[in-house]
Amino acid sequence: MSAVLQADPAAHKRKQRAPKPPRDWVLTGLWIALILVAAIWVMPFIFIVFTSLKSDAEIYGSGAFMPPTSWAWHNYAAAWKTGNFGTTLFNSLIISVIKVPLGILFSAMAAYAIAQVKVGGRKFIFLLFLLGTMVPFQVLLAPLFGLVNQLGLTNTYVGVILPYIAFGVPYQIFILRGYFREVPSELSEAALIDGASHVTIFWRIFLPVSLPALAALFILDFVATWNEFAMALVLLQDSGKWTLPLGLMAFQGQFASAYGPLNAAIVMTVLPATLVYLIFQRYFVSGLTMGAVKE
């Protein structure tokens, strides 16, 4: 290439004078806006983390967003021991680890049946599920408590997991049905011709290709289950069965002025859900956008 340019000086000049591509100011402005929005969202978390690592004297004597000069890790130890966060963390893990995969599995099976199994009345069944997304669970707390109490399931994991699944299934079916309808029907038809059952098609074809949607629902459902407060407050009256939000409420009521341990408790409460989101976030957008409903 250099030899060609030396042999043809005019070509060398044309290369030097080639105009630079114009700057995309719209894209630059979009990046600036995204950075500003991200900073606004991150600043409260930075404030909580910094406060959780400061002593009381440093909290009152330094700026809110100033990093701690000495790391007060004892705030986390005090919050963990005083707030009984070991028990509440275990309860939240048990409920979330059981409820989230089980609820998504039920929703995926129902969504597959509605989207791919050709039976009469499936659209009506789908509409019945959609009605569940229109009823706020707060108005059902009183009858729900009465039902759970009659079954003897208050202050139990089962008594919380079953209502959680029931209220989460309609939205998950709505998302997964749209996703399953995007899968080419030729795949299931060919498998049926080869003698495969609907159970085999569901497990071997539809679940593997729907991993982005399942991951997106896993994030949403895990965060919602982890942070759920009202239903747990009604159904779990024994402090030994409290979840992390209930434990944080009790800790805040007793140690409202202990800002260091209080913010440490907040960090320990939100950290697991944040880690789950960071692990699966690459599937989040693609999983929700590919599940668009197409009638």
Rank of each mutant, 00 (worst) to 15 (best):
Y259D: 08
Y283G: 07
V223S: 07
T87Q: 09
S239R: 12
G63W: 08
A232H: 08
E58T: 12
A142F: 07
M249K: 15
V119T: 12
W80I: 12
A38Q: 12
P245E: 04
Q281A: 10
A256W: 03
L211Q: 13
G168I: 03
V183F: 10
V42N: 11
A256F: 09
L262N: 02
F202G: 00
G253M: 05
A273V: 03
V160T: 13
S188C: 08
A258Y: 12
F255G: 07
K54H: 13
F229Q: 09
G152C: 02
T243E: 09
I173M: 04
A230P: 05
T243V: 13
V267D: 01
F50P: 07
S52Y: 05
A292Q: 14
L288S: 07
P101F: 05
A110W: 06
A258S: 13
L147F: 08
I279F: 10
L275T: 04
L36M: 15
E58D: 15
Q16L: 15
Y259C: 02
V199K: 05
L235Q: 04
F106H: 03
H12A: 15
L36T: 15
T156Q: 08
A115L: 09
Q16E: 09
V199M: 11
P19W: 00
G287P: 10
N149L: 07
G195K: 13
I175Q: 05
I279P: 00
V100T: 10
A110N: 06
L102Y: 02
V100N: 03
A108D: 04
F280T: 05
V26M: 12
P208F: 00
I104E: 00
K15D: 00
R17K: 13
G260R: 01
Q237L: 06
T274K: 06
D8P: 00
A108V: 00
G86N: 10
L93T: 15
L105R: 01
F145V: 14
I165K: 03
G240Y: 06
V169M: 11
A230S: 09
V270M: 07
P67M: 11
L217C: 10
M290G: 14
A142T: 12
G178E: 05
V293A: 15
A113P: 01
H198D: 00
S96E: 06
T274Q: 15
K118Q: 15
L127A: 14
A258C: 03
F251W: 05
L140F: 04
L153Y: 06
H74E: 14
Y277S: 01
A232T: 11
A264K: 00
N84F: 03
A72N: 14
L217P: 06
P245Y: 01
R17A: 13
H198C: 05
S197K: 06
Q150L: 09
G29F: 08
L141S: 03
A191V: 08
L176V: 05
W80K: 08
L236A: 04
R122V: 02
A113Y: 02
P143S: 14
A7L: 10
L128I: 15
V234P: 02
T289N: 13
L131Y: 14
F206S: 01
E295Y: 10
A250D: 09
F255E: 02
I279H: 01
I32T: 11
A224Y: 11
K15G: 02
P44S: 07
V199S: 06
S239L: 06
F124T: 15
A190P: 04
Y259S: 07
M231T: 08
F106D: 00
E182C: 14
F180P: 00
T87R: 13
L127Y: 15
V148F: 01
N155A: 05
Y112N: 02
